[in-house]
């Protein structure tokens, strides 16, 4: 087990290295006039340096004056010391900006995650135990609709119904107009009130895949021999489902849910942007659109790291939860 984890870790580090290299290479392969455009824009701003100075600074800051490979190792060397440079558009160190905004997204994601688990898993189980019934079709259709729903469309619909027509929530932002006049509890409620619609969007969009996953696995377990045996013993259906079947469905569920834990640190680009919630999704989207290379580079490598950790957790959990799985 220990050997397996170490091996996986080493492979992950290697993959991360190449992923970072690919992202870096892509950034470098963007037409050079891209940086020039930004330098020009920056030099247009009042009280700014001249175009040449900006260009030289941008090139030097991002090691663009060297070749791709030396430039990459320069970046990597700094990154290993957790120095990701200064963000161009936020004008603070990348890690500082990241730390400022990521926790808001984290809170949103944790709430979303709990709601998602609480809704998707029971629905999946119900759909599986009532297979081919009207209930099953309805739940499956809703889940599939959630997957097929474009987030921007759903968020806009929510805004139209709940903000414009009913006036229950505000259209944008994290805090209301009188935020500063409220006491601590009031400020908390104000923020919570503003987060309702974004969280609903996240939950509806993410519920589908977990629900389908639960249903598929539950169906598989329900058709297995030990469930038939349990039924043959004359156990009540409730006991069969929750004691025998559901517990075994938990094996794949735990692994996939464990694997999605690192994802709590990411943010929804579109939903956060549409609701103007200043989380990591919104911030990184703004950075990318404005061509803030240090921040984008950092965030993309961070996302890759999260994916790798997620896969690692999934694999390890799979072995831990299911004793039948042997690790080579």
């Amino acid at each position: 087990m220990k050997k397996y984890i170490i091996k996986r870790l080493l492979v992950s580090v290697l993959i991360l290295f190449f992923v970072a290299f690919c992202i870096y290479g892509l950034m470098r392969c963007l037409p050079s006039s891209y940086v020039e455009t930004i330098a020009r824009q920056k030099s247009m701003q009042p009280n700014s340096k001249s175009y040449e100075e900006w260009l030289a600074q941008l090139n030097a800051a991002y090691n663009l004056d060297k070749g791709i490979i030396p430039g990459f190792f320069g970046w990597l060397g700094n990154a290993l010391r957790l120095d990701f440079g200064d963000s161009w558009s936020w004008t603070v160190p990348v890690t500082q900006k990241f730390n400022d905004v990521v926790w808001l997204s984290f809170v949103i994601n944790v709430i979303t995650f709990i709601l998602e688990l609480g809704i998707a898993i029971p629905l999946g189980v119900v759909a599986a135990t009532h297979q081919y019934s009207r209930l099953d079709y309805t739940i499956s259709l809703i889940a599939l609709a959630g997957i097929s729903l474009p987030s921007f469309f759903f968020a806009s619909l929510l805004k139209l119904v709940f903000s414009v027509k009913l006036g229950w929530f505000e259209l944008y932002g994290l805090v209301g107009r009188y935020y500063n006049q409220l006491d601590a509890w009031g400020q908390f409620l104000d923020k919570a009130h503003h987060l309702v619609l974004p969280i609903v969007t996240f939950v509806v969009l993410s519920i589908g895949s977990l629900m389908r996953y639960t249903r598929t696995n539950m169906l598989e377990v329900l058709s297995s021999d030990y469930v038939r045996t349990a039924r043959a013993k004359g156990l009540p259906e409730n006991k069969v489902i929750f004691k025998h079947a559901f517990r075994n469905t938990l094996i794949p569920l735990v692994t996939i849910v464990g694997g999605s834990l690192p994802g709590l640190f990411t943010g929804g680009f579109i939903t956060e942007t549409l609701f103007a919630i200043p989380g990591i999704g919104y911030t990184s989207y703004q950075s990318m659109v404005q061509g803030d290379i240090p921040f984008s580079m950092f965030y993309m490598v961070f996302l890759s790291l999260l994916t790798l950790i997620g896969n690692l957790i999934t694999d390890i959990l799979y072995a831990v939860v299911d004793p039948r799985v042997r690790i080579a």
């Binding site: 690919c22 680009f269 984008s296 994916t307």
Partner: peptide
């Protein structure tokens, strides 16, 4: 290994960045 690497590369940010770069150009 290429597949592994491609799986890890976040696609949405890449698309956004390329889109923004095409805008700039």
């Amino acid at each position: 290994r290429i597949v592994d690497i491609m799986f890890c590369i976040p696609s949405t940010p890449i698309l956004i960045i390329i889109g923004a770069a095409m805008d700039a150009l």
